[in-house]
Simulated assay, not measured.
Amino acid sequence: MSDKKFLPALLLAIFLGFAGGHRFYVGKTGTAILQLVTCGGAGVWVLIDIVMIAMGKFLDKNNLPLAK
């Protein structure tokens, strides 16, 4: 289980997903920068991440599921 929490990641994805906020939070810096440059993949990438986080399928940089 990751030391990163589910709720902050979800809120960051909703409010700062276009800037990769949730990906910076879980340590995925490379893809976070890509989201920042592409405005969250024109919104599509952010929506996919929000669904993945809500379903509990989003992993941190060490491929561990987020803590509840």
Score class of each variant (00 low, 15 high):
residue 1 M to T: 14
residue 11 L to C: 06
residue 5 K to D: 13
residue 28 K to I: 01
residue 27 G to T: 10
residue 29 T to L: 12
residue 3 D to P: 04
residue 40 G to T: 04
residue 47 L to G: 14
residue 56 G to T: 11
residue 2 S to H: 05
residue 56 G to L: 12
residue 38 T to V: 01
residue 61 K to V: 09
residue 66 L to A: 10
residue 23 R to G: 03
residue 51 V to T: 05
residue 23 R to P: 03
residue 28 K to M: 08
residue 26 V to Q: 03
residue 62 N to S: 13
residue 37 V to M: 11
residue 20 G to W: 01
residue 45 W to D: 02
residue 35 Q to R: 12
residue 64 L to Q: 15
residue 31 T to Y: 01
residue 18 F to L: 12
residue 50 I to M: 01
residue 62 N to Y: 12
residue 59 L to D: 11
residue 7 L to N: 10
residue 18 F to G: 10
residue 59 L to V: 12
residue 25 Y to E: 04
residue 7 L to V: 14
residue 23 R to A: 04
residue 36 L to Y: 12
residue 25 Y to V: 09
residue 31 T to N: 11
residue 12 L to D: 04
residue 47 L to W: 04
residue 17 G to P: 09
residue 7 L to Q: 12
residue 13 A to W: 04
residue 8 P to R: 10
residue 22 H to P: 06
residue 50 I to F: 06
residue 9 A to T: 14
residue 19 A to Q: 10
residue 6 F to E: 08
residue 13 A to N: 09
residue 55 M to F: 10
residue 38 T to E: 07
residue 52 M to F: 12
residue 68 K to W: 10
residue 11 L to S: 03
residue 36 L to G: 10
residue 20 G to M: 04
residue 65 P to Y: 02
residue 39 C to T: 09
residue 18 F to N: 05
residue 29 T to R: 09
residue 25 Y to I: 07
residue 2 S to M: 06
residue 48 I to L: 14
residue 10 L to V: 01
residue 19 A to L: 15
residue 2 S to I: 03
residue 21 G to F: 07
residue 52 M to N: 14
residue 38 T to G: 05
residue 20 G to S: 10
residue 2 S to V: 06
residue 37 V to F: 15
residue 61 K to I: 08
residue 39 C to Y: 15
residue 11 L to M: 14
residue 51 V to R: 12
residue 19 A to W: 15
residue 2 S to C: 08
residue 66 L to Q: 09
residue 20 G to F: 01
residue 32 A to I: 05
residue 22 H to L: 07
residue 42 A to Q: 08
residue 1 M to Y: 08
residue 38 T to Q: 04
residue 64 L to P: 02
residue 11 L to Q: 04
residue 68 K to R: 14
residue 52 M to R: 14
residue 33 I to E: 00
